[in-house]
Design a protein around this nucleic acid. Sequence first.
DNA 1: CTCGAAATGTAATCGATGATTACATAATGG
DNA 2: CCATTATGTAATCATCGATTACATTTCGAG
Lengths: 227, 227
Amino acid sequence: MPARQTSKPQISKPQTSKPRARRQTPEARPYHHGDLRRVLIDAALQLAAEGAEVSVREAARRAAVSPGAPFRHFPNRDALMAAVAEEAQRRFRAEIEAALAEAPSADPLARFRAFGIAYVRWAMRYPAHFEIISTGRYFAHGSSAELTRDNDELVALTERMLAEAAEQGLLRSTDLKRILIAGRALIYGFARMNLDGHFPRWGVAEAEVERLAEGVIDLFIAGIGKS
Amino acid sequence: MPARQTSKPQISKPQTSKPRARRQTPEARPYHHGDLRRVLIDAALQLAAEGAEVSVREAARRAAVSPGAPFRHFPNRDALMAAVAEEAQRRFRAEIEAALAEAPSADPLARFRAFGIAYVRWAMRYPAHFEIISTGRYFAHGSSAELTRDNDELVALTERMLAEAAEQGLLRSTDLKRILIAGRALIYGFARMNLDGHFPRWGVAEAEVERLAEGVIDLFIAGIGKS
DNA sequence: CTCGAAATGTAATCGATGATTACATAATGG
DNA sequence: CCATTATGTAATCATCGATTACATTTCGAG
């Protein structure tokens, strides 16, 4: 994958076509490139999805733009990564909520189960994106209000499910915080074990993972349930 | 932290003292530096502990050696990281086993508890080291036989504890694999949530973490236990 | 409509990094 | 004692994130 031509003359871009690019939304945007910011985020997102290192230069390259251009839209690499994380988190949350929309609203523990399964599935399907939103290793996590908000709402979601379960007398223990953290640790830990490549060492085959996730979550729910 | 002088004349090293450095072990080692390999690993380990980026050059700098020297001992950066991981894993395993040596050998679930707590504590105390040995993001995890072996033995350790618990009729379920993975996911997930900075978002204070870990593990054990 | 200010992109450059190479030197062992 | 070999140095490359000076396009006020 290395050995990328560095002396490529950059094509110099004839710039003849592209008539005008009238704006369509009330928010106005189109400048030179059209919407470099958006394109850069998508490029970075795809870069991550490909398992490649996400570099500002490579994103710029894919947007057919000079290496300095991205810095007009992001003060530094971390800011780009934060934007990428926001986008990923938005998609993540949307998928979780879609899964919950199909779950029986009456049974809080069934909803918890659906949440956990959707969580693990998304992490399996978009490992690089999950990595970005979950570790804060690529940028300062608190730097994005949107990210924090999205995350907090997901936390509140599971909190409500457990509170409801407690109200309905479904739980053995009343220490909701402990149950909440344990449940999340289980789900997060399972997703990460898969992501971090632990499962081969545990004799768990790729095809088995999803079913195992269900089993593990069921075990947990049975453990906290009454009787 | 940047702006490090690049034109530093490197001191040219008088090299007068250091009489001979007779070898002591049957394995022979002392060449020029003494034991650059060892020193580089320690430097990298400390670099990680300081939260800094681990770079080959910086490790070389700390060993007072030229930037190319490390490559005589490691074919590339990843190989250095693998050696660092081996060292970290060795220490990790030693601490886990020390903790288990103090646990009651008769009660397998108590041993499991002790294992989990020691695991989380080590991860809290040496976050960068834990990160290195647990993610495989810094090098190809399967590339080190020693690392694989150490890890497998830790897996086998918990496996045995659960098998014993099952023999003594302490468990509700007979699906040991499921319980094993769930337990590990819980412990690993908890450690990672702490490492990845999730807990502030969950309203968990730093000082609270260790006690919460115990609670969460107890909750799990109660969940899988009979009655 | 026009023209200047602001937004956006380019080109060149900097220091740092991982990696490779040619060369120097010190240790080992026949 | 000396040649082989292990070890380290110096120089060099390409890539990266970042900054700066400069060019060009867009927009809006008059």
